[in-house]
Write a protein that binds this DNA or RNA. Structure first.
Lengths: 253, 253
DNA sequence: CGCTCGGTTGATGAATTTCAACAGTAGTGG
DNA sequence: CCACTACTGTTGAAATTCATCAACCGAGCG
């Protein structure tokens, strides 16, 4: 049950029962963390990674004045700092946003799983590459969208991710973020985010009240934020050639 | 010789002779590409990756009006789209910036190498995670720095990367970019980049003339851009506990 | 009740974009 | 050799977006 959602909708990279069981049995500890607690600091040497079972977590970089830029946000089913396994040290901090339930997986146990079930390695690699793809979408957002577009893009992306996790019905989802958090995600000030939210509300694109996001017409919001979910690499209904990741197979291809 | 620079300065993840030879013998083709040619489009199914031996390449996402945001820039010694191997499809385009010499490595051959030399897998994984770390630094740059800071940060980062590749002496390097490219990297307009460059010149922080970047005092430029190279994961002189990536070893740690 | 926190609003100013024009350089062909 | 073109860089002026500063509101809570 712990990692049910992990890689669930990713083309060709879903875990087998066996792989999921192996990961779950590698969990050394499950715990619930208070909201707004930093659990990993940049430059610390790490020997474990954190899988998020419930709640919301963030990864961020602070500037020299303490002004914060979020570089990622994570929801239930995300392997928050899996990249700490190959990297050993992170270049950013990791914190809870809401209260969060996490499963801790020691890197030593991860190593054992990969040795026992080598075909899991490309899937874990894949999972970290999805994070990188999301980073790129965020770069696009910050570099090329205006304030309204950035928020629209973020809320659309979040809708898509939460739908995939079974946490949004496509029109409405719970989001435990404050306007300050949106500002730190979108590279804006809190005051300006407030005005942007009003604009989105006035335009009928999105309501965000007491931790619920309502999106009457997701397509319109997506258009305003130039959002296209292809970079999330979810299985799409159209099927298409779902290339699976290679190694462990013969060099056919 | 082909991949001499690859992972050269990365802590604990340098390739062994054997691994490098294996990768180099997997090269199916070496070719020189004209400047400003797009060689990979988002959503194409890929069966090979591109290693950059000489020149400069970029990865980018265009908005619906064709305004471009670069999400990465690559120099000699970078494995430009290694992530295409686990992903199969990219979420962005890839292009040459200058004329470039590249080595093509079929994914089938990569699979074979990983099966033959499993300890290379975490190193390749690591290489793609460095790209992700750079994405995060770019997010910080776009989200939290002003125009002068963004350019200062980028030029400092590039100095650090090129030093590691042996292509900068720490004060001066060749950079085949136009002001338009800087704009697409830093999320600015070309006109404003022009003014920023003048400002950097006036402040004695940086000269950028006819493809050469001169940085009299790298520390001052870095300070202006809040640049700290730790996210590049280069070996540092201070040594420190150079954690190497695990699997293939016993679960000791 | 008084406090804190997150959200809201207004007024002002700074940073950046936009639009428009022009300069310098290199290449190209008559 | 010169005219012409193309490309990159440069500058000015006006418009716009967003940040900053400051105040206030409302809900929840001790």
């Amino acid at each position: 049950m712990i990692m049910e959602r992990f890689l669930r909708n990713n083309r060709g990279h879903a875990l087998t029962q066996e792989e999921r069981k192996a990961l779950e049995s590698a969990v050394s500890e499950i715990k619930t963390l208070a909201p707004r607690k930093t659990i990993v600091r940049a430059r610390e040497i790490l020997h474990q990674s954190t899988f998020l079972m419930e709640g919301t977590m963030s990864r961020y970089i602070d500037d020299t004045n303490g002004v914060r830029q979020l570089v990622a946000i994570h929801f239930a089913g995300d392997f928050v700092d899996l990249h700490a396994y190959p990297l050993g040290i992170l270049d950013h901090d990791v914190a809870t946003t809401t209260e969060a339930t996490v499963a801790i997986i020691p890197h030593a146990a991860l190593g054992k799983i990969i040795r026992d079930l080598p075909q899991i390695a490309p899937k874990l690699w894949f999972a970290t590459l999805i994070d990188a793809a999301i980073h790129r979408a965020w770069l696009f957002r910050l570099g090329r969208l205006d304030a309204v577009g950035r928020v629209a893009h973020f809320l659309s992306e979040t809708n898509a991710r939460l739908m995939s996790a079974g946490l949004s019905n496509g029109h409405r989802y719970a989001l435990g973020l404050r306007q300050t958090d949106l500002a730190e995600i979108c590279g804006l000030t809190t005051v300006h985010v407030n005005r942007v939210m009003r604009k989105l509300r006035e335009d009928g694109l999105c309501e965000f009240r007491s931790s619920w996001v309502d999106i009457p017409e997701p397509a319109r919001l997506a258009a305003r934020g130039q959002f296209d979910p292809h970079y999330l690499y979810f299985v799409d209904e159209r099927g298409g050639s779902q290339r699976t990741c290679p190694w462990g197979r013969e060099p056919a291809d």
